[in-house]
Amino acid sequence: ARSGSPLGARLLAVLSRDHLTEDDWDELEETLLLADVGAGPAGELIDALRTRVRVQGVSDPAAVRALLREELIALVDPTMDREVRTDGAEPGTPGVVLVVGVNGTGKTTTVGKLARVLVAEDKSVVLGAADTFRAAAADQLQTWGSRVGVHTVRADRDGADPAAVAFDAVKHGKATGADVVLVDTAGRLQNKAGLMDELGKITRVVTREAPLTEVLLVLDATTGQNGMQQARVFGEVAGVTGIVLTKLDGTAKGGIVVAVQRALGVPVKLVGLGEGPDDLAPFDAEQFVDGILG
């Protein structure tokens, strides 16, 4: 089939051939796939890399790997602003952080860990237990709060209106001059319209009392391609401003956030590295990429 192409193009193809075998390229692609980067983004990354390798005449697999590392880091973008906004947006209002996500990703745990960090910075913190659905969710949050001496605003019964609880928490924070109010919400799958409406209502009702300064989407690092859908829908409904990538202490790499960041521009701000109170860290682009590349 080649015979039909113009001589110049054929010549270029021969002269600038890269020296990696198809197996080398497959292996690189598999590294990305195994980290949950996704078939689409992984294919594009490898194609771009192939072009670059040909143009630059790189022939050593190790050097190509280094280039891939470079590309990935550029994609994850170490220069992005990843500060968690906990300062009040207006004088007299606390910073309000809303924590959202699908079931079981680590929202309540993350709120507990964040409270600990803020208290260590001498901030006064109030927790809002706006998960009124799951069994013992408020108890779980309160346990985290009591450990660092932080008050938890909660409903007096299961099934209470979560928006009302969130509102009360922010109101309480405002009245007591708290620096930050952290609001924990119930896990909900993004395809459940009723539950997503409820989340929309929580954000609207809270905003009446004080502007939301940060909306954190908690993504579980073990999540596969569905993570993209989660980020999209939660982004639309709740105006997500940052991502917390939890459970990075396991074998999962969390590669889905590469596509999420690229498609939605929402930065990963924090990572969860365990179940303990100190297992929360700022996101580090290079460390994350090195995790993916093994």
């Binding site: 949950d36 079931n103 799958l189 395809n191 999540t223 596969g224 859908q229 889905i256």
Partner: peptide
């Protein structure tokens, strides 16, 4: 919703507790 880590995890639990059956959760999602 788990991604590529399913194999590592399932293998680790198979070796660790030799499970006899599997339950797939959160299938009400998309």
């Amino acid at each position: 919703m788990i991604g590529q880590d399913a194999v590592n995890t399932a293998t680790a639990f198979l070796e660790g507790v030799d499970f006899t059956g599997v339950v797939l959760s959160k299938l009400d999602g998309d």
